[in-house]
Simulated scan of single mutants.
Amino acid sequence: MTRIIDGNEIADEIRADVKASVETLTDAGVQPGLATVLMSEDGASETYVSMKQEACEELGIAGHHHEIGPDEPADALFDRIDELNADPSVHGILVQMPVPSHVDKATVLERIDPEKDVDGFHPENVGRLVAGNARYKPCTPHGVQKILAAEGIDTEGKDAVVVGRSDIVGKPMANLLIQYGDGGNATTTVCHSRTEDLAEKTRQADILVAAAGVPEMIDGEMVKEGATVIDVGVNRVDADTEKGYELVGDVEFDSAKEKASAITPVPGGVGPLTIAMLMYNTVKAASVQSGVAVDLP
């Protein structure tokens, strides 16, 4: 029987650990604070920010939300980031992407204080991740690691294939899988849009992580018998539903689950872990900046 991995259940366990750490910090006079900054009128971005703020409220983290008009000059965003960097009540800063075309994304990431970069995308934090000394692991790849650990799926010596090479998921996911230590030690291949004979590569994977952003690009014929399939993709496709669309992953679920030993669904798989790990990183940042130790597994 294929095991359908319940991301919500795993995320709830992580949130419980985070909440306990929030209480430890609060008892010491420190309330963790996360600032979200939105410079967009994109509906999906607004929803994501709202979900992050709701998670803060649930766990006792102080949520600070800032909105900047998308037509405002880039300096309006940079000045706000500078203010948040200097605010001791803010331990984590997240600028919701995408930003408008007149704002340079790389400059935004570099502007955030690396100790407050709870997304883990500042160049200093990327370098630390690659060097095996991560300050904050990027939320989605770290969430995938937590799923594998919770499900008892050992990565050591396994063949892992990551489909996708984005800075947000693909690259850091591959880095985490090859690291020396728990959750790593896998022989890891990264595939992408220029990969020849993708199916040949994916059929070698004991652990297959799909993160290309292409709806249902991987079907059961591309999955090794008994593989673990982690579907990071979240794609809207037209459907005869009340909303006019449905969410699907990068994996064609019905056919892939016939081959996989364990698989994450979309929705309800990796997604819940992303926000849980953002809360995790925020509490870790508060601990680092305050000097108050917490027990975060």
Rank of each mutant, 00 (worst) to 15 (best):
G143V: 10
A205F: 06
A174E: 00
I93K: 03
A106H: 08
I153K: 04
T140R: 00
D113S: 12
V108T: 06
E216W: 13
K201F: 13
V95K: 02
N125Q: 07
P114R: 05
T188R: 01
A134H: 06
E124V: 15
V90K: 01
R194L: 09
P100W: 14
K224H: 10
G213H: 05
G164A: 05
L177G: 10
E156P: 06
P138I: 06
E200L: 14
P100V: 15
D206K: 02
E110S: 15
M222C: 07
A212Q: 01
P138N: 01
R135T: 08
Q204L: 11
E151M: 13
V190T: 08
V130C: 11
E124D: 13
S89L: 14
V99L: 03
V108G: 08
K158I: 07
F121D: 00
V169E: 07
P141Q: 03
G226C: 14
H122A: 11
G157K: 09
T195V: 10
E151C: 06
A205I: 11
K171I: 00
P114N: 11
P172S: 01
L94C: 11
G143Y: 06
Q96S: 12
T140D: 06
A199K: 13
T195Y: 12
R165K: 08
S101Q: 12
K137F: 04
S89A: 13
M217T: 06
N125I: 02
M217S: 15
L94R: 01
V169C: 15
S101C: 01
N125G: 01
A131G: 04
